[in-house]
Computed example of a mutant assay.
Amino acid sequence: MIVRRSKPLLKQVRTWPAGTISALQDCFEQTTWITLKEAATDSDTVNLEEYTTSVTGYISKCIDDVTVSKTIITRPNQKPWMIAELADVLRDIFNISLSCTVVPTCFKTTTIVPVPKKPMVSCLNDYHSVAFTFIIMKCFKKHVMRRIKIQLPPSLDPLQFTYRSNHSTDDAFSTTLHLVLTHMAKKGTHVRMLFIDFSSAFNTIVPQHLIGKLSLLDLNTSLCNWILDILTGRPQSVLIGSSTSNILHCIV
């Protein structure tokens, strides 16, 4: 079996000298996060965009103050980390976002990197579109997904295998094969099967139609509206090598 290994790359990054993490933790512990919220509040109404931008900008500044820019060798599977001291302020932003059914723009911003599906590329369909979003938003979406799964009724189609725990493509194949062979064990029977492959299925979902289906599953209206907001008005750009395209705002 041939194992593909990604080659190490030279990359300009911020490195963490000895004692840096402790210094950053002390910085976050001593920060009065409520002042950033108060600065973005007018007449008891929090401007979520301003609040989120202030918090993320402050975090970036603190990191820049204690880290050093350096050229290093990067290898596959190097994972980012999250500091526990940020839990309270991020939880506050998440709760405001859910209650207002509005997602901060910086959380929705996406960088798309085209990855070839095959060695020889001849057209745009020969690329996978890998979308990179803010790491904090990934954590946020995991919490929301967990909440959605809890609220889903037990009456979902038993033959749905995608995005269900302990279900996979192998289960779909095995179930289909079992049904076919069981039916054909009877004399004088035959099977007709129709396979449909939707081109760019996930990229062509109409958000309003999706929200209508989620409402039929008895998900509360505010959560549906929050999902609708994250799927609309998304700033996106394409990254190829070191070049980034202009930002395009997806209306739907």
Rank of each mutant, 00 (worst) to 15 (best):
P158I: 12
I136C: 05
F132D: 04
F132H: 10
I96Q: 04
T105C: 12
L156H: 09
V102C: 09
C139S: 13
H143W: 04
K149M: 15
M120I: 15
M137F: 15
F107R: 03
I148L: 10
L124V: 03
H128Y: 11
I112F: 07
T109D: 01
K142H: 05
K117G: 02
F107S: 02
S155D: 05
V130I: 11
F94N: 03
D126H: 00
S155I: 09
P104M: 02
K149D: 14
F140C: 10
F132T: 11
V144S: 07
V130P: 00
M120E: 15
I150A: 12
H143P: 03
D126C: 00
P153K: 07
M120A: 10
S122A: 15
V113R: 04
K108Y: 13
K118E: 12
M137L: 00
Y127M: 07
A131M: 07
P114Q: 02
R147E: 10
V103G: 13
I135H: 14
K118C: 11
T133V: 12
K108S: 02
L152Y: 01
K141R: 13
S97V: 02
F140I: 10
T111G: 05
I112G: 03
C139D: 14
K138V: 11
P158N: 13
T110N: 03
M137R: 04
I112L: 10
V144L: 15
T110C: 05
T111C: 10
D126Q: 00
N95L: 09
P153N: 01
V121Y: 00
Y127L: 11
S129A: 05
I112E: 11
P153Y: 00
V103Y: 05
T101Q: 15
M137D: 02
F94R: 08
A131Q: 08
F140D: 03
T111I: 14
C123N: 06
I135C: 13
L156G: 08
